[in-house]
Design a protein around this nucleic acid. Structure first.
Lengths: 120, 120
DNA sequence: CAGAATCCCGGAGGATACTG
DNA sequence: CAGTATCCTCCGGGATTCTG
């Protein structure tokens, strides 16, 4: 995303998390570390390229950690750092909003609006 | 942003809020309604075009309300709807994270790392 | 398995001019 | 003041191929 201009904290945060995938990636790392292909399976829409790029960006921001186990074949695990744990709250709140949103739109799609009185 | 695939709530939420400006716009509407050019002044980086598009998108999502006062010249106010109020928590948490982030990066830029013991 | 390298495209976002 | 209307740029993101 393009550089921020005002230095507003919301702007800065969205600059780092505003993409399509980053917060989603973080959300999958909250519970336990995940491997590269594990993340790919969890996000069928993402390409390896973007997954790699976003993981690198989050790593460079110090929010996630990349651990390589020198086995054969190699095993790479991604996990939240201490700093990254600061995103747990963000993930939780966004998820809560997303849940409400999905539910609300389901109602709309079903043709049942909020006001039952009108549908009598 | 492109359509979501998994229906994950985080993904849905980011689909609606993931752009560069939308959550920032909402953050400015939390306290009190704002006029069009007022928002422009608050966000020097945004173009009229994007401001209009994002306002329309948020309006269509039922999160903000557009009120036109038929004065001369016209006065248009944007405010959060009841549904939009559900974003207050999101804004607060994201802002808190952004603040922490900015502060952390300021430390890094100043060359003072977290561990004083090492710098003795 | 976990990527790197390459090529490619659509759309998010920008610049400018104009208007009721 | 609060927008439309155009045109344009750039980069987020995708598809495919290759490798240690």
């Amino acid at each position: 995303m393009k550089k921020t201009v005002t230095g507003c904290s919301v702007e800065e945060a969205m600059h780092l998390l505003g993409g399509r995938w980053r917060l989603l990636i973080v959300s999958y790392l909250v519970d336990e570390p995940k491997r590269f292909n594990e993340l790919r399976r969890l996000m069928p829409g993402i390409s390896q390229r973007m997954l790699t790029l976003d993981l690198r960006a989050l790593e460079q921001a110090g929010l996630i950690r990349r651990t390589v186990y020198p086995t054969v074949p190699v095993k790479v695990e991604y996990s939240l750092t201490g700093d990254g744990r600061r995103l747990e709250k963000v993930v939780a709140v966004v998820k809560e909003f997303g849940l409400w949103l999905k539910d609300r739109d389901k109602q709309v799609l079903a043709g049942r609006e909020v006001s039952p009185a009108l549908t009598v």
